[in-house]
Design a protein around this nucleic acid. Structure first.
Length: 817
RNA sequence: GCCGGGGUGGUGAAAUCGGUAAACACAGGGGACUUAAAAUCCCCCGGGCUUCACGCCCUUGCGGGUUCGAGUCCCGCCCCCGGCACCA
């Protein structure tokens, strides 16, 4: 239960009042002219939410408040802060929810958006509602489709076959997250993989640039690391292994392999092809076709998740075919195994069981030869291999390279292979092309028409948007293709190229495409004839600060970087990195665990805001832990900020005129220094603690404050508790909004200096006394005072003094023997 | 397995160019004011020993090390959280 209100501070009344005034007076919104004329633009971006039926959760509010605090701080520093908000409302999430409750996403989303908007206003964010976006609005996805066309025309979109998860019982395509332990989330049937033609964006063409630019952008270190790992650059060699017949003669064909350890080629005792490898048929003996095809069939049916399970026992079949190891000249067998992935490298490997754990395991399973070619310390060429040795050492059993250290062998062997024409240096990335096709309903239709004569043809720009039709039966069904493929009246069309009857693409695009460019759209929502206005975009982009969850460290943040780069290359933008600064925030947990419905530890924000007010809730969320780490939510904890804001109210509303007290003024200036330093670092919890401490000093002993003492406090608390600050600002006799009228207080060092400082006195590193000395006291003076302390003298008595350590302003340490 | 981030009082947490560990706050205890309650203000609040008091010892996951001095740096472990995971 909230404490009784003690006279004046009535959060619900003043919050209602200021939310109304902000809107009536357009305090947080920009007109087109204001966007054009802004003198000191600051684009403060946060990750737009998916508008669920449950409404805003605490995690959303935490993230938005943290970002809003930053925006409001910048505004008080005099910036023109643009802080837009929108809704990422397409996608499988909404679609599944609509299916579950038996409604249509086109009915569901508007009511969810309405509810979210209400809640977002209620928490007091500085959102510019004049520039909101909704990804499901045709006026938005028209331009999402336009982006597809830009990439398509630039050759950055291509259609190719790729595996999808397929539930044979539901007869439908499943997203990876719908596959739980290899089974369909809905019916429990084991999931298979199927291959269908899908659209891909060639993000891999940009892999190196996406990696290189990470060195120049100011992002959270953890996010940078995640992106580097995801791009996964590795250097090695591509080697050619000639295919030979039963007599060892070259067939004129070769298998290409990629390896990061070309120096272990002398230990390659067999080859492995991925089951999808195009040369499987060619190398398989007639006698072995039946088991080989049976194996490929089984591997193909395994779903994509199960296929990637580590530590399962290795499976595979021999093809009967052979290669020649180009380093040793040996004839080695070719196998097929699903531990080799077609998506990485060349889809084929040279197996070196002595020095690769997976190959070792496979060789043991199938009794294949194993040879040591690297000797570690205390090992030699004949030391038996109990397990794969992957450490450093020197080459052995490696012909001309025997004795060479592994620190130089990769380079040396690659050079040798190149000289002899069977290999070259090669860089590889783990990053795959971005599959944007979804065999679903709730997304923007991919703007392509398939014509029997012309092939896939882009929908002309003037025909955009390709509007998603309202289809009552949007459930994926046993046709196995997109629900739109059942709507003949929609997909039957004319080829834009030749005019013949043609068929629209019936897949929709990935939600990540919607969100890959929303920040580009916000400042240009005043224009419906272009996706982005050049002048406005030049003024406002790139984004100054982007704050969001690290769960999007790779996908969203990488895709939006890629789209930005591509649009730059196509002449639509003059920058290639979308966000100057990105900061990842932490996660709110409860009772040490992530909040989830199944745990029953979810916090419903509305009743808390109802009871304590948005200002208290915001301040508490920012106080409960460091913003970049998150924290543990405890219902009791809100009492701290609640009492603090109440006391601040009482103190300010009863403040008198007059000269401030010097000690109090010093504390105020120390606080200004600290808060001004900590807010930009997102150290909100300690900034709030400093404000509390300052108020405690101002109020000590029930003292009545002077106005000049509390005024800076009102401004500094405004980012956290904007409504309260507005009201107090007005009551102090100011006109208009504090965010327009106030300036962030300036730290004045002369007002913050102390005449004396507290210093610690140690003997052999143990604290024996604290002394108060003049700020500018010399070392001799300080040491002399320290000696006079009784407890210090006692510990020095009878001991030989070896050294005195003096750290000015901090401590004195007597080292005695 | 790999890559991040952590481990500090009853609780959320402060303090990392090495320099008085536990700021701020919650919970708890005591007091002032009050007919009473609320609100407000003051005091106590890591463990142990001792004491009128002063004081002493121990304490930042564990074990070593460097240093006048280590929560902070180095070496070796343990545990928790998040992400990736047969990437050759």
């Amino acid at each position: 239960m909230a404490r009784e209100d003690n006279g004046g501070y009535d959060p619900s009344a003043i919050e209602e009042k200021w939310q109304r005034l902000w809107e009536e007076r357009g305090i947080n919104t920009f007109t087109l002219d204001e966007l054009r004329d802004a003198e000191d633009p600051f684009y403060n971006l946060m990750m737009f939410p998916y508008p669920s039926a449950e409404g805003l959760h605490v995690g959303n509010i935490y993230a938005f408040t943290g970002a809003d605090v930053h925006g409001r701080y910048q505004r008080l520093r005099g910036k023109d802060v643009f802080e837009p908000m929108g809704f990422d409302a397409f996608g499988i999430h909404s679609e599944n929810f609509a299916l579950k409750i038996g409604t249509h996403p086109m009915d569901l989303i508007p009511s969810n958006v309405k509810n979210f908007t209400r809640q977002l206003r209620r928490i007091g964010g500085m959102f510019d509602w004049n520039h909101a976006v909704d990804t499901t609005d045709p006026s938005y996805y028209k331009w999402t489709q336009w982006i597809f066309l830009q990439l398509f025309e630039a050759g950055l979109a291509e259609r190719k076959e790729a595996p999808v998860n397929w539930c044979p019982s539901c007869m439908t395509v499943l997203a990876n997250e719908q596959v739980i332990g290899g089974e369909c989330e809905r019916c429990g049937t084991p999931v298979e993989q199927r291959r269908i033609a899908q659209w891909f964006f060639k993000i891999t063409d940009y892999a190196q640039r996406l990696l290189d630019n990470l060195d120049h952008i100011d992002w959270s270190e953890t996010t940078l690391k995640a992106q580097r790992n995801w791009i996964g650059r590795s250097t090695g060699a591509q080697l050619h292994f000639p295919v030979v017949d039963e007599d060892g003669r070259d067939t004129g064909r070769a298998i290409e392999v990629y390896t990061t350890r070309p120096d272990t080629v002398f230990g390659a005792t067999y080859m492995v092809l991925s089951p999808e490898h195009p040369m499987v048929e060619e190398v398989t003996d007639d006698a072995l076709r039946a088991p080989v095809y049976a194996y490929i069939d089984t591997a193909g049916k395994k779903d994509l998740v199960a296929r990637q399970k580590v530590h399962k026992t290795k499976t595979g079949v021999p093809t009967g075919g052979h290669c020649r190891n180009p380093a040793t000249g040996e004839r080695i067998p070719i196998w097929i195994a699903d531990y080799v992935l077609m998506e990485y490298g060349t889809g084929a490997i040279m197996a070196v069981p002595g020095h690769d754990e997976r190959d070792f395991e496979f060789a043991r399973e199938f009794d294949l030869p194993n040879r040591r070619v690297v000797a570690g310390p205390d090992e030699d060429a004949d030391t038996p291999l109990q397990e794969a040795y992957v450490g450093p050492g020197r080459l052995v059993n490696s012909g001309p390279f025997d004795g060479m250290d592994t620190s130089e062998s990769v380079e040396a062997v690659t050079a040798w292979a190149a000289e002899n024409g069977w290999g070259e240096m090669k860089v590889n990335y783990r990053l795959h092309d971005w599959c944007i096709s979804r065999q679903r309903y709730w997304g923007p239709p991919i703007p392509v028409v398939h014509c029997e004569v012309c092939g896939p043809v882009a929908v002309p720009e003037e025909d955009l948007p390709v509007v998603l039709p309202r289809v009552e039966d949007f459930k994926p069904d046993d046709t196995g293709i997109s629900p739109l493929a059942r709507v003949e009246s929609w997909y039957r069309t004319e080829c834009p190229g030749c005019g013949r009857e043609a068929r629209r693409e019936t897949d929709v695009s990935d939600t990540f495409l919607d969100s890959s460019w929303y920040f580009l759209r916000y400042p240009s929502t005043d224009f419906d004839d272009r996706p982005l206005d050049a002048e406005i975009t030049r003024k406002w982009l790139p984004v100054d600060t982007y704050i969001g969850g690290n769960e999007h460290a790779v996908l969203h943040l990488l895709y939006s970087r890629f789209i930005t780069m591509a649009l730059k290359d196509l002449g639509h933008l003059d920058f290639e990195e979308p966000y100057d600064v990105f900061r990842a925030h932490g996660l709110i947990i409860r009772e040490g665990a992530k909040m989830s419905k199944s745990r029953g530890n979810v916090i419903v924000p509305d009743p808390i805001i109802e009871e304590y007010g948005a200002d208290t809730f915001r301040t508490y969320l920012m106080f409960l832990g460091p913003f970049d780490e998150g924290g543990d939510y405890r219902a009791q904890g809100i009492q701290g900020p609640f009492g603090f804001l109440h006391r601040l109210w009482d103190t300010v509303t009863s403040a008198r005129e007059g000269e401030p007290d010097a000690d109090v003024e010093r504390k105020v200036h120390e606080t200004i220094r600290q808060v001004t330093e900590q807010i930009p670092q997102l150290s909100y919890n300690t900034a709030i603690a400093a404000l509390m401490e300052c108020l405690n000093v101002i109020r000590a002993g029930g003292r009545t404050a002077f106005r000049a003492e509390v005024e800076p406090l009102v401004v500094m608390v405004a980012p956290f508790a904007p409504h309260l600050a507005e009201e107090l600002w007005e009551r102090m006799g100011n006109e208009g909004s504090i965010f327009d009228g106030a300036r962030w207080p300036e730290y004045d060092a002369s007002k913050a200096t102390r005449e004396s400082v507290e210093m610690a006195v140690q003997v052999n590193g143990k604290l024996r006394a604290t002394i108060s000395v003049a700020k500018d006291a010399s070392e001799d003076e300080v040491v002399a005072i320290a000696r006079t302390e009784e407890n210090v003298a006692r510990h020095l008595d009878g001991k030989e003094e070896r050294r005195v350590v003096h750290v000015p302003g901090r401590l004195v340490n007597f080292v005695v023997g």
